[in-house]
Design a binder for these strands. Structure first.
Lengths: 354, 354
DNA sequence: CTGAAAGCGCTAACAT
DNA sequence: ATGTTAGCGCTTTCAG
């Protein structure tokens, strides 16, 4: 049945054509599924292809068509469930539309991100979805447009860049939760983020390079100061980008003379560490410390107390980004769209009253 | 400084060559970084490339060299932190070695897996890392070898396939934890897995298509029967592949006339649901129910009680798989290697004594 | 050290 | 409906 092929001899359209007794073009037509061919010839070619164990070369196809059927995705950390869900959403939509996903992990390192984008463009991905590490750097992103590929920004918009974006209403969510905490009597509220500043100390929102986080901080600060519990800058902690760093930082916070009565964690990885430290220190939650986090990670529902969260539709974020990109790939020419998905406050039990 | 290029005119080696006043071959040599070129010419070409905003076409390069600098990765579910970590490990090693990662999510669906592998091979990835959904199906995997690409199996080995594998000592781990539970007096121990059988009921290990899980079940059964608490088949629950299914199944288990005193969860997603259900039902843990899970997911340390787990070196699993693959890509010819990474029992507090 | 020419495997006009 | 003929952008002999 099966003709064994010498391993190193790639079977090409030409081989199949010869074996089927037709021209290369005809064979290519049936193998590539385009143009029109008579049924008889089609069957003959297919048979020949099968018996020769023909395997199409997508690279060659891409060369001539100019489309690779691939989209590049650059995220900060695929290990973070946030991105895990987003990438899953992207993958599903992409697959359904016949696209492959090339994934690059920047580790939130700008240089890695830049290099990744460069190779993805060189590999001729049809388009890119990027969650940029810094909102201050845009050259490498503009490069994508210059190369004629559409770009969709995921979770982190950049004002200086006029492209499609899919984000959540970070600023508003931050405002809401801050307001909530204030209304429960909290006056010492800390905000902890993985983003870092050159000095590892926060002084102004301008220093926060990740757009989504920056907006949250701006919302946090605004409401806090409106409520008269400011200045808020003293309560912002940056650089919680490893469990160890988060731990250290939380220890400092909780061990200080005037510890916060509430902590807002910028992502679930941070919240997890805060939770651990609080427990270790025997700090009662929500009695002595309230905790609230962005990202409704699965585990937040099973702790004691369960953690109150800002639920972000992460999977949908990924889906939407992929859909937008594919629309562009299909020729959509409308001006850049900025999709903002709503978040939802899920009150569970980690917020107390002061 | 920057010459704006007409968007749709891709600059090629030929253009750069012309502009620099050298032959195409010479320009290609400096642009591609191979062969030997005089310093003067090199500089001239580089300058021309920059001013023309030349962007290499990796596709064309791959066409002629036969190497794409890309490795394909097929996993069951990137949303599962288990695979998230593994993929991160793979990505880091790949990046360091100059490879890109094309990720495909099979959703544990065999047909999707088959299709993904087919396109990855057609796209000429240099090699593949796969965590196969079924150990009974090998044709599509053998295809990879026939196409002349190396394959490394991740987390799930397949006996019928003689390729490199990286796994953990699942059987032994299962034996150990079962023994532990027995020693603590448990005689009604359930094992819950996402794997499914055609009938959605377990009767024999042969029906379990995922290699790693099958081995665990075999270990579980063996120790249980040796300890005289068998037959064990009655305690095995399959099909916990969605939160809802897991929930239902756990409800059944805990609501039965003779509920288990201990549950072994095959992955952390399952453990999470079991935990939720137990709490909801007011089942005391570890008093009335003990819980143990495979995969040391981050959250398992913060619940009350914290969950005892079989820690698998997941990130390292990914790293090792990538390393092995890259070795093959570099011409390593040794017979297939089977790397088995050790797991570790981390006792926390979810196992009680009966 | 540099250039000319021949492909890689496929698709895309253009004929027939 | 099918065949002919050019390329796509790059690397790679093989000369010089």
């Amino acid at each position: 049945m099966k003709e064994a092929q010498p391993k190193n001899t790639a079977v090409t359209v030409a081989d199949v054509a010869r074996s089927a007794g037709v021209s290369k073009a005809t064979a290519a037509r049936v193998l590539g599924g385009y143009g029109t061919v008579s049924d008889r010839v089609r069957d003959a070619v297919k048979a020949a292809a099968k018996s020769l164990d023909y395997r199409p070369n997508e690279l060659a196809r891409s060369m001539t068509t100019g489309r690779s059927g691939t989209i590049g995705v650059v995220v900060g950390d695929i290990e973070n469930p946030f991105f895990g869900s987003a990438v899953r959403g992207i993958s599903e939509i992409a697959r359904a539309a016949g696209f492959n996903v090339v994934l690059a992990n920047s580790g939130e390192d700008f240089e890695v991100e830049r290099a990744a984008i460069k190779t993805l463009v060189a590999k001729r991905v049809d388009g890119l979805i990027v969650s940029p590490a810094r909102q201050s750097e845009v050259d490498h992103l503009k490069e994508i447009g210059r190369a004629g590929r559409p770009l969709v920004l995921l979770d982190r918009a950049i004002g200086a860049l006029d492209v499609d974006t899919v984000t959540t209403d970070d600023r508003q969510a931050a405002e809401n939760v801050t307001r909530l905490l204030v209304s429960r009597g909290h006056r010492r509220i800390a905000y902890v983020t993985a983003c870092d500043t050159p000095t590892h100390v926060y002084s102004h929102a301008d220093e926060i390079s990740t757009a989504s986080v920056r907006e949250r901080i701006e919302g946090f600060v605004r409401i806090g100061e409106e409520a008269g519990i400011g200045p808020m800058a003293q309560w912002i902690r940056v650089g919680a980008n490893t469990p160890e760093a988060t731990r250290r930082l939380t220890m400092d916070l909780l061990g200080s003379a005037a510890p916060p009565s509430a902590i807002i964690a910028s992502d679930s990885l941070i919240a997890l560490e805060v939770f651990k430290v609080a427990r270790e220190l025997g700090v009662d939650m929500p009695g002595a410390l309230s905790l609230l986090t962005f990202h409704d990670a699965a585990w937040t529902a099973v702790t004691s107390p369960p953690v109150t969260v800002v639920r972000q539709p992460v999977y949908e974020l990924g889906e939407a980004a992929a859909r937008m990109l594919i629309e562009r790939l299909n020729g959509e020419q409308c001006p850049p769209r900025h999709l903002v998905l709503p978040t939802q406050l899920v009150e569970r039990g980690s917020i107390g009253t002061v």
